[in-house]
């Protein structure tokens, strides 16, 4: 049984990275398929973009942007840990990753509404 502490911020970072990755990986084929279909004509793409103007679609987009930014920032922390050996100040790096994800989401929200 894995007895490592689960209250540490890096465990939370692991959960966020895994959940965001899972949701993004499930969304990806749908995103590519919808985009590929919509791009078949300018009028069709405009129709798709008009549909995406509804508040629910914008809310979903904002969540996706936050998930993508969180997975990116968390992934950079993992890469730095594995390849550069940046083992110190992990709590700060987790906090910075969360801050980056929320900041990107906020900037997107401010621009899209």
């Amino acid at each position: 049984m894995d007895m490592r502490p689960r209250s540490h911020p890096t465990y939370l970072a692991f959960v966020v990275h895994r959940v965001s990755g899972l949701l993004l990986a499930l969304f990806l084929p749908l995103h590519f398929w919808a985009l590929g279909t919509a791009i078949s004509g300018e009028a069709r793409l405009d129709g798709f973009l008009r549909w995406a103007e509804n508040p629910l679609a914008k809310a979903a987009e904002t969540i996706l942007v936050i998930l993508l930014a969180a997975h990116l920032a968390g992934g950079l922390r993992v890469l730095a840990l594995e390849f550069l050996g940046w083992r110190s100040r992990q709590k700060d790096m987790v906090a910075a990753s969360a801050g980056i994800a929320l900041l990107v989401g906020l900037v997107f929200l401010l621009n899209v509404v």
Partner: peptide
């Protein structure tokens, strides 16, 4: 690149053109 593109492109709405 994708995130910068998204955040800047959505400003003022998106159009196919």
């Amino acid at each position: 690149v994708h995130l910068v593109m998204i955040v800047t492109a959505v400003r003022g709405g998106l159009s196919a053109a």
